[in-house]
Structures are given as C-alpha cells and as structure tokens.
Amino acid sequence: MPTITPTSFFEGTGTSMEDIAPLRFFLIIPKGCKEDYQNNSIWMAHAIAIFEE
C-alpha cells in the first residue's frame, strides 16, 4: 500500500496541507485492496470514495 504523508501532494510546490485542508479525493485502487485502504485511518480521512479496478 502506498504511504500518504502531509507533504505527499505538495512537495516542491510551496503549498502546504493547511492551505487547502481538508484535502479530499477519490481513490482508484487495484482489485482486492479495498479493505486495506478502508482500515487505514490516514487514507480514509481524505477519501471521498474508493473504487477498485
């Protein structure tokens, strides 16, 4: 499972998490991984929905 950190989306951009918090997005993940993502509090804090493909 990939790791998400406070700088995952902003490194080198001069934008911080606080500037756009709360960051929300749709996750598209490989089939069979949905439960792992749903059980991860950091991913779920930002996920609007999770789709397996």
Rank of each mutant, 00 (worst) to 15 (best):
M1N: 10
M1H: 07
P2V: 03
P2F: 04
T3G: 12
T3D: 07
T5V: 04
T5K: 12
T5L: 09
T7R: 13
T7S: 13
T7L: 13
T7C: 13
S8K: 02
S8P: 00
S8H: 04
S8G: 05
S8L: 09
S8V: 04
F9A: 11
F9T: 00
F9C: 09
F10H: 05
F10T: 02
F10W: 09
E11S: 13
E11D: 08
G12H: 06
G12I: 02
T13K: 14
T13W: 07
T15Y: 14
T15M: 15
T15P: 06
T15K: 15
T15E: 12
S16H: 13
S16A: 14
S16Q: 12
E18R: 15
E18K: 15
E18W: 13
E18A: 15
E18V: 12
D19Y: 11
I20Q: 14
A21I: 03
A21W: 13
A21F: 12
A21P: 07
A21D: 10
P22A: 10
P22Y: 06
P22S: 11
P22F: 12
L23F: 15
L23H: 08
L23G: 02
R24K: 15
R24E: 04
R24G: 11
R24N: 12
F25H: 10
F26W: 09
F26N: 10
F26I: 07
F26T: 08
L27S: 01
L27T: 03
L27Q: 04
I28R: 01
I28Q: 02
I29C: 00
I29F: 00
I29K: 00
I29E: 00
P30V: 00
P30W: 01
K31T: 03
K31P: 06
K31Y: 04
K31E: 03
K31H: 09
G32D: 01
G32N: 05
G32E: 00
G32Q: 04
G32S: 05
G32H: 02
G32L: 07
C33V: 03
C33D: 05
C33L: 15
C33Y: 09
C33R: 11
K34D: 04
K34N: 05
K34V: 05
E35W: 07
D36T: 06
D36G: 10
D36Q: 14
Y37S: 06
Y37I: 08
Q38N: 13
Q38C: 15
N39P: 01
N39Y: 02
N39K: 15
N39C: 06
N39I: 01
N40A: 10
N40H: 08
N40M: 05
S41D: 05
S41W: 06
I42P: 01
I42T: 08
I42K: 14
I42L: 14
W43V: 03
W43Y: 13
W43E: 02
W43P: 00
M44P: 03
M44C: 13
M44Q: 09
M44Y: 04
A45Y: 08
A45T: 03
H46Y: 07
H46R: 14
H46P: 00
I48W: 06
I48R: 10
I48L: 14
I48N: 07
A49N: 10
I50L: 15
I50V: 13
I50W: 01
F51H: 07
F51P: 01
E52Q: 04
E53L: 12
E53K: 07
E53R: 08
